Simulated scan of single mutants.
Amino acid sequence: MEAKKVQITIYGAEQICASCVGAPGSKDTYEWLQAAIGRKYDDEPINYEYVDINQPAKEEKHRLFIERMVEEDLFYPIVFVNDEMVAEGIPRLKTIYNELDKHGVVLQS
């Protein structure tokens, strides 16, 4: 069974979220997730994307979500697997792994 392509998007900023003092920065989380997922899964079907919420968004869906983050005062980083928000603030690997399993991403052999 071939895994479908999976998009992992991390929304964040260089400045650490005020409510997440002591947590790693968004860019660090982005890099950590890639390493952690790559150790457990065949990450060939996975595309990673980092969106800095303080930079002008190139895509409409990112711009709209950044507006939502501000309006709803969401904690970042925020992690999406495809169109499903799976983490807000400090991400939990188990939750992200469960979502990858749902999408048929294959474990490392």
Results as ranks from 00 to 15, higher is better:
100 L>D: 04
109 S>F: 12
41 Y>I: 00
24 P>D: 12
63 R>H: 10
12 G>R: 12
94 K>Y: 00
94 K>V: 03
78 I>R: 14
28 D>W: 10
76 Y>D: 01
33 L>Y: 05
38 G>D: 10
18 A>Q: 10
104 G>L: 01
89 G>N: 02
103 H>D: 04
102 K>D: 04
101 D>M: 03
98 N>S: 11
41 Y>W: 02
101 D>F: 01
90 I>L: 13
57 A>F: 01
95 T>K: 11
94 K>T: 04
37 I>K: 02
58 K>M: 14
2 E>M: 13
62 H>N: 15
58 K>S: 12
73 D>N: 10
22 G>C: 12
54 N>T: 05
28 D>S: 10
26 S>C: 13
16 I>S: 04
87 A>Q: 06
100 L>F: 04
32 W>N: 15
79 V>Q: 09
46 I>Q: 03
62 H>W: 13
66 I>P: 04
77 P>N: 05
30 Y>A: 07
18 A>D: 08
82 N>L: 01
95 T>S: 06
44 E>W: 14
83 D>Q: 08
11 Y>F: 15
90 I>S: 09
18 A>L: 11
81 V>I: 14
65 F>C: 04
88 E>G: 05
98 N>C: 07
75 F>C: 11
52 D>Q: 14
97 Y>I: 03
22 G>A: 12
76 Y>I: 10
24 P>M: 12
89 G>L: 01
69 M>P: 01
45 P>H: 11
68 R>I: 03
11 Y>A: 08
21 V>A: 08
106 V>C: 00
93 L>P: 01
43 D>F: 04
